[in-house]
């Protein structure tokens, strides 16, 4: 079976692209899928720390592209799940060290042996974005319910369509249920109404993502977390399962007590 190459992009920085890649890749690998993620932010690598693999880097993507190591040598294996690998970005080079053709070649080499290849796109619409788009089979656009992020998402969606890599699918990240209820945050419906693309996931804002980042362990591996469930649901949708969108309404203390007394799982 040939891998599906999924580009995760946003336009604006800081909306949660890298976190999304780490969580989806980990969730899919936990399901027994063979997954590779590639950090394309040459010069500003992040995915290694989000996955907690920063101490094991020897070779990186630029070494692979330049032929100074074999592809397998640059792939760092995550030991928490069966088949999850990271190809880190180079930290001391710039984006011109990799071309779109290089990325097509690398991804084609990976296709035969894996189920999913995730490309973590750098912010912006420059060279790094072109590199991440060239080999893509599917584009996930991450945005937040904020004016600047939605505006940039719209621009990216247009560029993805212009490159005939669309239609992109949307992940709305960092939604605060209580603020949406009060009318102080754009709702999922508002954002979909503006961007007019298909939704593949809504992820609540959760301090647990910060904690997970501190530990270098994706939240999607924690079965107790609502935010982890949101990522696992997206992973399931990527596997073609029809998963309903969960309610982001936080559980009340008596609901939590109820599940606790029933001894059931808290999801």
């Amino acid at each position: 079976m040939a891998a599906k190459v999924i580009t995760v992009t946003s336009g604006k920085g800081g909306v949660g692209k890298t976190t999304t890649v780490a969580n989806l890749a980990a969730a899919l690998a936990a399901e027994g899928q063979r997954v590779v993620c590639i950090d394309l932010d040459i010069g500003l690598r992040n995915l290694d720390v989000v996955l907690g693999l920063e101490n094991r880097i020897v070779y990186d993507l630029v070494h692979v592209v330049e032929g100074s190591c074999r592809l397998r040598q640059a792939m760092i294996k995550d030991k928490r799940v069966p088949e999850l690998y990271l190809i880190p970005a180079a930290q001391t080079r710039d984006k011109s060290a990799v071309t779109p053709e290089d990325m097509v070649r690398v991804c084609n080499e990976l296709r035969a042996d894996f189920d999913f290849v995730f490309l973590d796109c750098p912010a912006g619409i420059e060279a790094g974005f072109r590199n991440a788009l060239a080999p893509s089979d599917m584009v996930l656009v991450v945005t937040n319910p904020e004016v600047a992020a939605v505006r940039d998402a719209d621009r990216i969606i247009g560029l993805v369509e212009a490159e005939q890599k669309g239609p992109a699918q949307l992940i709305l990240n960092r939604v605060r249920y209580a603020m949406v209820e009060r009318g102080e945050m754009l709702s999922t419906e508002d954002v979909l109404d503006i961007l007019a693309i298909d939704l593949i996931g809504v992820v609540p804002e959760d301090p647990a993502v910060i904690t997970a980042g501190n530990l270098g362990s994706p939240a999607s591996l924690d079965k107790e977390l609502l935010v982890g469930q949101a990522y696992r649901d997206i992973a399931a949708r990527l596997l073609g399962r029809d998963v309903p969108f969960m309610s982001l309404k936080p559980k009340t203390w008596y609901q939590k007590l109820g599940t606790f007394l029933n001894g059931g799982d808290t999801k």
């Binding site: 505006r151 719209d154 247009g158 949406v180 009318g183 508002d190 503006i194």
Partner: peptide
């Protein structure tokens, strides 16, 4: 009016120019 309404109308006014 709530700020979300404001956000939505600002984006809707902005996007045609961006596009």
């Amino acid at each position: 009016k709530h700020s979300a309404t404001n956000a939505k109308s600002r984006i809707r006014a902005l996007l045609p120019y961006d596009r």
